[in-house]
Design a protein around this nucleic acid. Structure first.
Lengths: 342, 342
DNA sequence: CTGTTAGCGCATTCAA
DNA sequence: TTGAATGCGCTAACAG
């Protein structure tokens, strides 16, 4: 493998000149630059990443603390990871995977101290996340995907649950719906302080209140079977129900099953809207589910950008940045059916 | 950040002694070792990854060429990636993501030359894959996930399509089925030489012949709608059909829809078996689909192990290693219905 | 605009 | 069983 010294010799210049030609950190006479580039080409020179990192004290690597579970049905995590990897590459960084769970804060600290990464992206943060504490103590730049309890001075990117839910309700209200139910994640997750479940629940109540409507929400285990039961329960509690918003992909399949079982047509009798879904789930049902899918790729890009901001500025420009989900029309939304007076 | 020199000073030994205490490459007197470890602890020492790599000429990094697309519905890619990352860590390696497509062989070569990775895992290889050529030319150890056309001397891990299909057919035959159809990926993918589609098609014909049965196979675009059409077509071609094997997740949803539409009960009238699926898709349908899911995690671990074999041995022990899919019982398989004589 | 040189932090050879 | 010294390949002062 050719080194910078080989190139320098070939081109008849000093190593520093080659180095500066590489970095552009100081002006080089065009002809000299030409000669150097020609030599590099001839020798197939690629700068050694390790030597460069050691000398410059910057690894040009971003670590991604990768979540334990994919998210059930779809590819949101995959989208996020790929987008983050691509954006990193565009910016001259590599993305390494650190498969650590919440409990492995010590391992995170140790790896961080090895200087393998200039900064860290942390997926699936929980409300009280030791990994974040450790990174702050070690002065390692990071960006959270999701948010801890204290979010004021911590850089993060996340889904804008408020805006997402508000748009969902607004859309349904625009279609004439007034009796709208929300199917959330499981009670365990809510109790555990799982951010999306908690935030969406609050947002739903607020959005409904904002439209002068009565909120009707249920926690629901992540399974079609329980989704079916919950749907039955909802219909019993509120016979005038004309729309169901779900933030639980597996449960949504159960919603469909129960409605079909009862001979309720989608969307004629009941409209269904899946929010914060993976892309591509809408097409799995018949009629195709209208969704507001999670902006995985955008979040991936944004997280990298926010981290690189810190690496250059050393500052935390915006504590947190939120992106709403995007409405992906399917065939499961329609005008509210005329209510038989109840 | 403490360096090895700090530790040496603290412990009253030389730098090399600390280094050897770290690597274990030569004997150290127990008390000395104790003292060194105590110093390391006190200083929170972690060896600098870049310096170590530069000096030892081994990066302790594995690169994963990460595919462009997740695979539709489920999390097989995610499983693979996580398992590979975890296995790498267990073995003292880090996993970096290289988001390169088939056409970016040159970029692969350049990154490889930067010495950032000791070896490469290549996902989604195609039958003629330039990335593999480039890695061979650059003498970079690699393992393919999937197989190129020439597979004899190239280390790879892959799904054992022969065994998977054979087991699937055997299972169905054991249930009395004799008229079994196979729904493959799209014709485009087959024509493009997409390994799984080609290999499974061959395996199906062979397995059916082995049981003295007439093969009935169809290519099918990756969508529920087309899956439905193909199912209708199959039922028209062979009214005695009692079982359908699918290797196309989205199409499977269409199979269910068409069967239900015709009042054909699963599995009473027709059994359905999804092969090479992602884990977790079985539960999305009603009745739950019986699947043979792709061994993503096993492949991830195995791919890393095979690569590390090369890094230590320098040899390629087994050219390719195949793992069959695992039967995950659902509720979509039953005995063949008694045929009305046709 | 270009060259010389001192490290970056560690592994490893050579000596003792 | 341990220490001293060299160099991995590059960056970035410092000097011209």
């Amino acid at each position: 493998m050719a080194t910078i010294a080989d190139v320098a010799r070939e081109a008849g210049v000093s190593v520093s000149t080659v180095s500066y030609a590489l970095s552009g950190a100081r002006p080089i006479r065009p002809e000299t630059r030409e000669r150097i580039q020609e030599s590099m080409r001839r020798l197939g020179f690629q700068p050694n990443a390790m030597a460069r990192s050691l000398a410059s004290r910057r690894s040009k690597v971003i670590a991604l603390i990768y979540p334990q579970f994919g998210d059930g049905v779809g590819g949101t995590v995959g989208e996020f990871v790929r987008a983050a990897a691509e954006r990193s590459r565009e910016q001259g960084y590599q993305l390494v995977l650190w498969p650590f769970e919440v409990g492995q804060a010590k391992e995170v600290r140790n790896l961080a101290r090895q200087g393998m990464a200039d900064g860290v992206l942390v997926m699936e943060v929980v409300l009280d996340d030791q990994r974040i504490d450790v990174l702050e103590a070690a002065q390692v730049p990071y960006v959270m995907i999701g948010r801890t309890r204290d979010v004021q001075h911590r850089p993060s990117v996340d889904i804008d649950f408020d805006a997402t839910v508000e748009r969902a309700i607004e859309h349904l209200v625009g279609l004439g719906h007034r009796h709208i139910a929300f199917i959330n994640h499981s009670q365990e997750r809510i109790d555990a302080g799982y951010g999306p479940a908690v935030r969406a629940a609050v947002a739903f109540d607020r959005a409904m209140a904002g439209h002068g409507l009565e909120p009707l929400a249920r926690a629901c285990a992540e399974s079609p079977v329980v989704g079916r039961e919950v749907t039955a329960d909802l219909l019993a509690s509120e016979p005038r129900l004309t729309a169901i918003v779900t933030m639980n992909e597996l449960a949504t399949f159960g919603v469909y099953a129960e409605l079909q079982h009862r001979g309720l047509a989608i969307p004629h009798d009941v409209s269904v809207l899946g929010i914060v879904t993976s892309p591509g789930v809408g097409v799995l049902t018949y009629p195709p589910l209208s969704t507001m899918h999670a902006p995985g790729a955008e979040l991936g890009r944004l997280a990298v950008d926010r981290l690189l901001d810190q690496l250059s500025d050393g500052r935390h420009p915006l504590p947190n940045q939120l992106i709403p989900c995007v409405l992906e029309p399917g065939m499961s939304l329609g005008p509210a059916r005329t209510e038989p007076d109840a």
